[in-house]
Simulated scan of single mutants.
Amino acid sequence: MVMTVDDGEKVKCYINSTAQPRASLAFRITNLDARPAPAVTDFSSRGPSLTCPSVLKPDIMGPGFLILAAWPPNVEAHPYYFPGRYTNFNIVSGTSMACPHLAGVGALLKKAHPDWSPAAVRSAIMTTADTTDLSGGPIQDSNPAHHGPAATGFAMGAGQVNPNKALHPGLVYDLGSSDYVNLLCAMNFTANQIRAITRSVTDCSSSSAPSSDLNYPSFVAVFSANRSDHVLELRRTLTNVDDDQEIMATYYEAHVTALDGFKVRVVPEKLVFKCKGDEQSFKLVLEMESHLKEEDNKPFLRSGYLKWIQVGGSKRVVQSPVVATNINSFF
C-alpha cells in the first residue's frame, strides 16, 4: 500500500472531522481499470538529450511503477527497509522494471519479423504507441512542474508502448550504420572517437555526409534562443513493411497537429507505396509565426504529432511526436 502526502492530508482531515474516525484495510484485492492510467511517474527521466538535442528523448514509455515480478531468492528483497528478508517475488519501481517490458516487446517483434533492423523495431514500437489514457484524454505527467499536466514529448516520448499494434506498423523509419556515423560526424566527434565507437576508420571530410537530421521516428525542431532562424526543415524516409499489401498501391495522407506559434506543413502531403519494401521521402517544415518571433529569449516548448494515415485498406496510422523548442534557453 502506498499513500502520498495528499492522501495523508485527507486522512488527517477525516480524523479531525469526526469524534469516532474509522478505517479498514483489505488485503489480497486487485483493483482493475484504474483511471487515469497510464501516466508518467514523477521520477521518470525526461528529455531533452543534452548530448544530441536533435534526437527526441525519451523514445517510449513502458510499465515501470510498482511492478510485481520474479526476484532472485538469494538476494535480499529490501536490504534497507527489511534486511534479511528473502522472497521469490518483489514489487519494484523504476527504469529497471520498464526496460524489461520494452526489451520483451523488441524480442517479440524481432521473432515475428526477423528481417527487420533494430531501427525498424524501434520505429514500429514508437509509431504505434498510445498517447491517450483509459479515460480518453492525453496521458498526464505526474509532475506538472514539467511544462503542464499533459505529458510532452520530453516526458513520454512517443507514448505508451502497445505491443499488438507494433506487430503491424505499416511503415517504418529505418536506419543503417552509416546514418549513425554521419550523425557522429555532424556532432564533431574526432576520428579517434568515432573509431572507438564503430571499430573502423571514418573520414568525415570525404566518406560521409554529416547530418544531425537522423531518420528517426520523432521530430525535434531546435530553434536558436534569439529566433534568428525562422524556418526549419526536417527530412525523413519511410519504408513500407506491410505484409498484407496486395498488388495495388497503398496511399498515406499526412495529418499534423497544430503547434501554437508555428505554421507546419508536410511536403508532399501524400505518399504512394507500390509494394512492400518501397521507400518514399518527405520533409516536415516548421515556420515560426510573427508573434513568436517578437518574444526574444523567452523559452518555448510546443508538442504535437505527425500522423501518416492510410487511405483505405487497413487504415494504419503511423504517428510521430513533433517538438519545437529553443532548447538552449529553455534548459
Rank of each mutant, 00 (worst) to 15 (best):
V266I: 03
C204F: 09
A221V: 12
R227E: 06
A221N: 09
T237I: 13
A254Y: 01
V256T: 14
L214K: 13
H230S: 15
S218G: 14
K263F: 02
V266K: 05
L234N: 06
F262T: 09
H230N: 14
L214A: 09
A221S: 15
F219C: 02
D203P: 05
L214N: 09
A258C: 05
S211E: 00
V241E: 05
N215S: 14
S205P: 00
Y251M: 14
A225T: 13
A249T: 10
C204M: 05
V241Y: 05
D213R: 03
R236L: 11
T250V: 15
V222K: 04
I247N: 13
F223I: 08
T237P: 03
T237N: 04
S205E: 05
G261H: 03
F262D: 08
F262H: 07
V264G: 01
K263I: 05
E233H: 12
D203H: 14
T257D: 15
V222L: 01
D243I: 08
N226I: 03
S211R: 01
A249P: 09
S212Q: 08
L259I: 06
L259Q: 04
N226Y: 00
V267H: 03
Y251W: 13
P217A: 04
F219E: 03
L214I: 13
F223W: 08
S218D: 07
T239M: 12
S228P: 00
V222R: 02
V267S: 04
N215P: 10
R227W: 01
V231P: 06
N240C: 15
E246C: 06
Y252I: 04
Y216E: 03
D244K: 11
A221F: 15
G261W: 01
S212N: 10
A225W: 12
S208Y: 03
H230P: 04
E253R: 11
D243T: 10
Y252M: 02
L238I: 08
D229E: 08
V231N: 13
T239E: 15
R227H: 12
D260P: 00
S218N: 07
D213G: 00
V220K: 03
N240I: 03
G261E: 01
A209L: 09
S211L: 00
M248Y: 07
V241P: 09
N226S: 11
Q245H: 02
Y216H: 09
E246T: 14
T239W: 00
T237W: 06
N240R: 01
